[in-house]
Design a protein around this nucleic acid. Structure first.
Lengths: 170, 170
DNA sequence: ACTCTGAGTTTACTTTTCTATACTCAGCTG
DNA sequence: CAGCTGAGTATAGAAAAGTAAACTCAGAGT
């Protein structure tokens, strides 16, 4: 309906010829936090049940200084929280637990896992499976819309949102 | 039911005290491909409608050598494919298009986007929105099980799969 | 024949990560 | 009160990744 509809039929609202400002992209902003090496793998281990520094270190085999750095950042960002716990006959120590903000990353990581299961698994299958606790069914992620239609990947359209901006002219 | 059920009630099948072999983890294997800087942002631009080297370069502002390297890798991995196209009055040039294998990464990236929309968006909202083509409804990702239950994040249980292994003893 | 342009390649430099080892610190145990 | 242990911190050297800018190359246009 505006003067832009002249050539590109595919990308309805995000014409590549537009000088889009990508600095407020939600994908890029999420990657700023979870895009460094080890970060997502640390979260994976938290979901699988680890909570202590030594557990992460042992299972991941990652350098201690990076582990300490990543854990500190995840706590700062509110994705993990520290608790103090005490085993009988030992002094109290910190433990890392996931927050709601951290749980909300599960869908993204399940997406990565599902892709790996499909394209890069061993012949026998995946090393770990996700199950619905209780019903026991295999869990996977789906794309749905407001009106609860099951959306095919081809039927997703990206359009400018409220914070869409063009890059300021130089 | 086995001798392992002695202390940790939370992680039913992936006790952090087990010496799990993580080398065949689907999450880690996916990150080997899309975990490097720029890779996911290149895919984002492909979904948004870019296909040419110069378009990626301009919108991402990433160094040419890395862009070339990442594109080559994405093509090698079968996530993108090259086509030749020719605009009238110009010589034919390569163009990058997404494959099915690439489309299958959409759920993972939508997961990242959704998290960014929720926790890191500008006050006005997100810069880009995903819509169901046709119905026009807002699209988001959901976790479901086999039996089509809508699964809460807390009700996902991770259990050893067919390729689960312990680390070989040293 | 010469120029222009998109699509890269090459090279040199900087920054970040990785690995490895040594060191600290608090408090329970002997 | 010395020693042990988990959870770090500190430091140094090597490797990988990222950045910036110059250079190449093929073919259409003039």
């Amino acid at each position: 309906m505006d003067a832009r509809n002249d050539a590109d039929e595919d990308a309805a609202g995000l014409d590549p010829r537009l000088d889009r400002d990508t600095s407020n992209c939600s994908i890029a902003r999420t990657l700023e936090i979870v895009g460094e090496k080890w970060t997502i793998l640390i979260l994976r281990e938290v979901w699988y049940g680890s909570s202590r520094f030594s557990e992460f270190e042992h299972v991941l085999g990652c350098p201690r200084n990076l582990l300490a750095e990543r854990l500190k950042m995840l706590v700062q960002e509110g994705i993990l929280a520290t608790e103090t716990y005490k085993e009988p006959g030992a002094r109290s120590r910190p433990r890392y637990v996931i927050t709601q903000k951290g749980m909300d990353l599960v869908p993204a990581v399940m997406g990565l896992m599902q892709w790996g299961d499909k394209y890069r698994a061993d012949p026998e299958g995946p090393a770990v499976e996700a199950r619905h606790r209780g019903c026991g069914g295999h869990v996977d992620i789906q794309i749905r819309c407001d009106r609860d239609h099951h959306v095919q990947l081809e039927d997703i359209e990206s359009i400018p949102g409220p914070a869409f901006r063009l890059r300021p002219a130089v």
